[in-house]
Design a protein around this nucleic acid. Sequence first.
DNA 1: GCCGTTTTCGGCCCGACTGTTTTCAGTCG
Length: 575
Amino acid sequence: MMEKAQIAAVLDEIALLLELNDENPFKIRAYSSGARILENLTEDLDELIRTGRLSEIPGMGEALVDKITTLRQTGTLPFHQKLRATIPAGLFEVMQIQGLGPKKVRALWKQLGVEDLTKLKEVCESGAVAELKGFGEKTQTKILEGIKNRVAYAKRHRWVDAAKIAEPILAGLRALPQVKHAESAGSMRRSRETVGDLDFIVASSEPAPIMAWFVAYPGVKEVTAHGETKSSVRFENGLQADLRVVPEEQFFFALHHFTGSKEHNVAMRHRALARGLSMSEWGFKAVDENQTAPGAKDEAAVFAALGLPWIPPELREGLGEIEASEAQALPKLLELSDLKGAFHNHTTASDGEHTLEEMAAAADKVGWEYLGISDHSKSSFQAHGLDEGRLLQQMEAIAKLNASKKFKVRILTGSEVDILRDGTLDYADDLLGRLDFVVASVHTLFNLDSEAQTARIIRAIESEHVDMVGHVTGRLLNRREPYAVDLTKIIDAAAANETIIELNSNPWRLDMDWRWWRRAAEKGVLCSINPDAHHQDHLDFVQHGVRMARKGWLTKDQVFNTRSLAEVLRWLGRA
DNA sequence: GCCGTTTTCGGCCCGACTGTTTTCAGTCG
């Protein structure tokens, strides 16, 4: 028995092995695309296999369904094992080096006996690589650089970290006199939780000075490409940035193209061809040379030419957005201005950096109607969790503060109560019942197996006093994997018990992952965009939660904290 | 390997840049 993510990893590995064997590129693509489909699948895999519906998914043919079924049921695949035996395992790492693809790696392997990074370094240093046909001095030097920096180069960066670098560059580009339009594209524009590299698209008839400005930008550590219309640079932290300058009339095609995703673009091109148009970053070209092809004066026109309403970048992941657009069924996505308050915030009573009053002042500044305070419970002693006495004191302090009318915002009493090992809660029911709201979270025993972890969280969800479940998988981007938990079952339990699932907006967490929200919302589960603030400034984190909710196709109605104070109190049973 | 109101075979998205070449292959997105 193998999990979806592991099966996807095997398919990706098969694709890589096939590449090294110089196989048909389209066969390779079929395996990679199969891996992407699996990763984005939120339905129950066993169910899909049992009912035969797996093969109905476009891109899932007979061979893939067979192999996925075998992997799911036996945990291993003879085809994969056989393929693996033909290729040294060390070549996987060699393939990761910038500038090395299957052809070059194969040449290094067959002609110089390179089977891992150690040997690769050796043959580069000896000068043997430069002697190979198709290689030279520069390639050899670049490979050595690539080996040295491979960890930094391969890393994906949190969206916030990438945005910090991207924003001043974008502002700088827009300030150049030659620049007509400038936008950031790629996964940054699609609001992915992590960003691989930055893509800037600029409209101008005079690219040379823009290119010169870009490659000389402060903080650029290395210029990896410097052409007439395309340049690439790398920053100290390993983040790469690409700049493309195009004529104004092609700008919105280029912007669309480099926003991606790859899967979205493939589907768009497919659709274009069905309408007699070939589509690229340069625009449309009529397949029939006697026909003229439409241009685009904005991005909406690119979609309109294919009979589609504009699709927000966050949705362009090839997960049905084109079909929804065609059916005029795109969601009206949540916006930051829809939020009327927020739950799950900490104060100095536990591990927050600001007092109750300071947090209230910060909420007034944002203009919220309510702010839910939920400090840690007593088991989280590392975070100064509150015992029953201190919690009662805090409730009193909040009542006084609300009565004083010192702040416009209404403070709600709450707790981020620990879910204990067996799924019971860290406070007794009568105390929980006196709070305005309760967030239940796991802070211990991350290594339980999926069954135990899931059962533990579901027991908390079933408690009549728990209003929401906090950071449901515990992941920290680039730092800690999510704990093993069956989100399908969690979502079903949340739906059955009318428990809200939090979208924790701390930029390290962004948990629950955006890929699950459509399913959750379809089942009727409400989302709460929670800042999990430990500092006044952290109330701003909700912007990241909103970005993720948009990626999850959520509308205003599906998000709890878009409701007014009166509605929220009624839902919580406090009015 | 996938797919088909043009096809069950023969297509499958397209272009820039680099480094190695003397006209283009490989890589990347």
